[in-house]
């Protein structure tokens, strides 16, 4: 019942193709993203998982033009949001894309709301800017969407300041704001990390219900694999600025093929008997100023062979399921794949 939406429409909400990006510093460039490709179909909920610093937020911030100007350099690739190429846009064009086509929910609801402006005005400003609605209409839209986020007495809440709300309420206001102009794509960047599990489950449900009902695509960024497994249709696993595996959530989590995905799942206390030793990943994330040769996971990988240390594996596989690993790619003929590059 949940997956019918994806099959119906084949249109792309977001198409990131081979995006490479670096942050120049005095001591050299940090290669934050390397050949990242992410596709999100209309009405699809896609998860991006990975540990801190793997580039999951940078990917979406680059796509929506939210990275600080002049501090980064795109070294290749393209981004299309509903067919519009955003990398070449100037600020005023981006403002038309953000809010109307794509909007972002951030992790810290307190930092994302203006503390000196009442909730109602913050909501109606956005709606009036993008929908060209009158103030009365905008207030009605705002009230309806707050009620949809299960906020009791929306009229009263609209007259409050952000500090008067609890963390869970603030996050629901932000989700209301993100959905208020009916964007086709919502980027949720760790929206529940700062919240309690009881509130988190409500927030996830509200995002999922609204997205399914309105046919909105969602990119859900998280480090919590269990949350992604409950919410997303498909997921991408990122490691050190590269996508290492992607596929339908169930398939990837039940039968992970990349050694990093396997190791990540083995670290979780959910999956072992109490008091048993967890299989921690040895070593540390590579320094992206001087990344290792070949596969980035190779220094920590138990199965690495010579080929892994010399050449980078590409994401290979049928559309639904791709893995970037020499040991588990699409076919057994490793040498043949290598010569094709």
């Amino acid at each position: 019942m949940m997956t019918t939406g994806i099959v119906e429409s084949r249109g792309q909400a977001l198409a990131i193709h081979n995006l490479s990006l670096e942050f120049p510093t005095f001591s050299g460039a940090i290669k934050a993203l390397d050949n990242v490709s992410i596709n999100v179909a209309k009405a699809e909920i896609v998860g991006i998982v990975g540990e801190s610093g793997c580039g999951k937020s940078v990917t979406t911030m680059a796509a929506t033009g939210l990275l600080p100007k002049g501090r980064y350099r795109v070294t290749g690739g393209s981004v299309r949001i509903f067919g519009h190429s955003t990398l070449a846009m100037d600020e005023s064009q981006l403002q038309d894309v953000r809010g109307k086509m794509v909007s972002t929910i951030f992790q810290e609801p307190m930092n994302a709301l203006n503390p000196t402006i009442r909730i109602g005005k913050q909501l109606t400003d956005v709606i009036m800017r993008h929908e060209e609605a009158s103030l009365t209409d905008a207030r009605r839209i705002a009230r309806d969407i707050l009620a949809d986020m299960l906020i009791g007495e929306p009229e009263r809440v609209m007259n409050l300041y952000p500090f008067e709300l609890s963390g869970g309420m603030r996050q629901r206001v932000l989700i209301a704001m993100a959905f208020s102009c009916n964007p086709g794509l919502i980027i949720a960047d760790e929206p529940t990390t700062a919240l309690d599990v009881t509130v988190q489950a409500v927030i996830l449900r509200l995002i999922q219900n609204r997205a399914r009902r309105t046919g909105t695509s969602v990119i859900f960024i998280s480090h919590n694999v269990a949350v992604v497994s409950q919410l997303c249709d498909r997921l991408y696993v990122m490691y050190a600025g590269r996508i290492v595996e992607q596929g339908a959530t169930r398939t990837v989590l039940d039968a992970p093929q990349h050694p990093y995905t396997q190791a990540l799942l083995r670290c979780l206390p959910e999956r072992v008997a109490p008091k048993q030793e967890l299989e921690a990943i040895t070593g540390a994330v590579p320094n992206l100023m001087h990344p290792p040769a070949g596969c980035y996971f190779q220094p920590r990988c138990k199965e690495a062979v010579d080929l892994c240390r010399s050449r980078s594996p590409q994401l290979e596989g049928a559309d639904g399921r791709q893995v970037a690993c020499w040991r588990r790619g699409v076919g057994p003929e490793i040498s043949e794949q290598g010569s094709r590059q």
């Binding site: 988190q200 489950a201 269990a226 497994s229 989590l253 959910e270």
Partner: peptide, 8 residues
């Protein structure tokens, strides 16, 4: 609390 905890 347990029903809301994320789970596989």
């Amino acid at each position: 609390l347990l029903a809301s905890a994320p789970s596989f």
